[in-house]
Amino acid sequence: MNVFRLAGDMTHLLSIVVLLLKIRTTKSCAGISLKTQELYVLVFLTRYLDLFTRYFSVYNVLMKLIFIGTSVAIFWYMRYHKVVKQTYSKDLDSFRHYHLILGCFLMALLIPFDFSVTEVLWTFSIYLEAVAILPQLVLLQKSRNIDNLTGNYVFLLGAYRALYLLNWIYRFFTEIHKIRWIPWISGLVQTALYADFFYYYIQSWRKHEELKLPA
């Protein structure tokens, strides 16, 4: 474990806590894409298949359970909670995310890390996470005003993978000395997708203005 990976995991955890806080305290999920949340549930379920078969550390098991549990909880709130589900902007959440699932699955079949079920699904989860934020970014562009908690959620979610890129560079030079094409390229794509959001988020923070993405 290195400082970049720990910071990345904590930032990822914080993003989920911020989102859960927003939904629980405001009893609203306005501005949040249910489709992105569904994609993340799929990412965690297909990535952590080895949860009960391979033990790394208490930390590893705990965090996997927390990520699966919180992402399912957020999905449940947005889909089934009687008050929260009324605030879901269904008409704005229009991205065809099933295309993302199919595309990433085909990619994982063509370019898997290894031709076994768990490795193809692991690769699928890496590819899917890279594009999982797209429905959310599209929804933000359609939203007139983005509330602080939603902006912070997306920023933290993007920042965590950027920290993971630093973690991979660190591990390359200190322990692995091998190129990890699949997670690295996917992580680069994932972080690049946040580029313009990062720009407008930092601008709004510096100018103390409301966050607004150009349509």
């Binding site: 990976r5 590893n60 990520f67 290894d114 490795e119 692991w122 690769t123 091998k178």
Partner: peptide, 10 residues
């Protein structure tokens, strides 16, 4: 086969 890279990561 070999286990995928950085499997100890989240």
């Amino acid at each position: 086969g070999p286990s995928s890279p950085s499997k100890d990561e989240l």
